[in-house]
């Protein structure tokens, strides 16, 4: 019985050790050593460098931005979809469909849409409006990230709202609660788990993003992901790259812990 259980867990074990634990250990070892193999904290402390701090700041700014936009767009949509049963599946499908196409391809397509001679500017030109510089700035990065990660916000929100018992809402209405009170007292707290996981799913990939910043930002905006990528590919300083990655991971763990604790207390408060 026991050996059978080991057999069944073996593939997962191999996977998690080989592709999760081992790489993390390698990153840690590189991050905590220097070229001579001596232990050092300098690679972690390097985050205090003004260039790295400003890159982290840019990443945070854009990650907050894309998370906030996704939440504002998806929350009402998820609520409407969870209330209407006929068309909701189709709309969800429409949101999920682009995820079948490679992320990078969609970003490259977006580049063509936003370019100076791109689709939007061609249409504007048709109406006699001069070409707009839509690409290669912070806004373009924000559009790209939001576009890529929006479904990750919508799906958890939709699932959480579908699970809200209609009877609770009906009972509240019977007892004289207005629509605003129902929303504030029932829908909002009960959808919190979806909000939390949506935020985590969008915020974490956003904060470490670098390829979208290169393509849609024209390599003009340095995010912390770009710094780490360059330490590996351009400068060949794997120690510094790993050190900064560790700092970023710590950052992500802390924000996840805060989010999870808030999520738990919201649920317990009911």
């Amino acid at each position: 019985m026991k050996s059978k259980r080991i057999c069944l867990t073996a593939p997962y074990l191999v996977w998690s050790v080989g592709f999760i634990v081992l790489p993390l250990v390698i990153v840690l070892v590189y991050g905590l050593t220097n070229d001579n193999g001596n232990l050092t904290l300098a690679n972690l402390a390097a985050i205090a460098d003004p260039i790295h701090l400003s890159a982290l700041g840019q990443s945070l700014l854009i990650a907050f931005g894309s998370t906030a936009i996704s939440l504002i767009v998806c929350y009402p949509l998820a609520y409407i979809l969870s209330r209407s049963h006929q068309s909701s599946r189709l709309v969800i499908m429409l949101f999920v469909l682009p995820m079948w196409i490679n992320f990078m391809l969609r970003i490259l397509a977006l580049q063509m849409v936003l370019a100076n001679t791109g689709i939007i500017n061609t249409v504007l030109g048709f109406f006699g409006i001069p070409a707009q510089h839509l690409l290669y700035n912070r806004r373009a990065i924000l559009i790209g990230m939001t576009y890529d990660y929006l479904p990750f916000m919508l799906l958890p929100l939709y699932n959480a709202m579908c699970r809200i018992d209609r009877d609770l809402i009906d009972a509240a209405a019977d007892l004289g609660a207005g629509r605003f009170v129902i929303f504030r007292k029932i829908v909002l707290p009960l959808s919190m788990p979806g909000v939390i996981s949506g935020i985590i799913m969008v915020f974490i990939p956003s904060i470490s993003e670098f390829a979208i910043a290169d393509i849609l930002g024209g390599s003009k905006i340095l995010l912390i992901g770009n710094v780490i990528e360059q330490e590996f590919s351009l400068t060949n300083n794997w120690h510094l790259g790993s050190g900064l990655s560790v700092v970023l991971m710590i950052f992500i763990f802390i924000s996840m812990a805060i989010m999870n604790r808030r999520g738990e207390s919201e649920v317990q408060a009911l």
């Binding site: 370019a115 100076n116 001679t117 510089h133 690409l135 290669y136 930002g217 024209g218 390599s219 003009k220």
Partner: peptide, 19 residues
């Protein structure tokens, strides 16, 4: 005033008339 920093993509951007 720089539109973008590019490597190989610059050729295509020039051909398209983006810059």
């Amino acid at each position: 005033i720089v539109m973008a920093y590019m490597v190989d993509e610059s050729r295509d951007a020039m051909i398209a008339g983006d810059a």
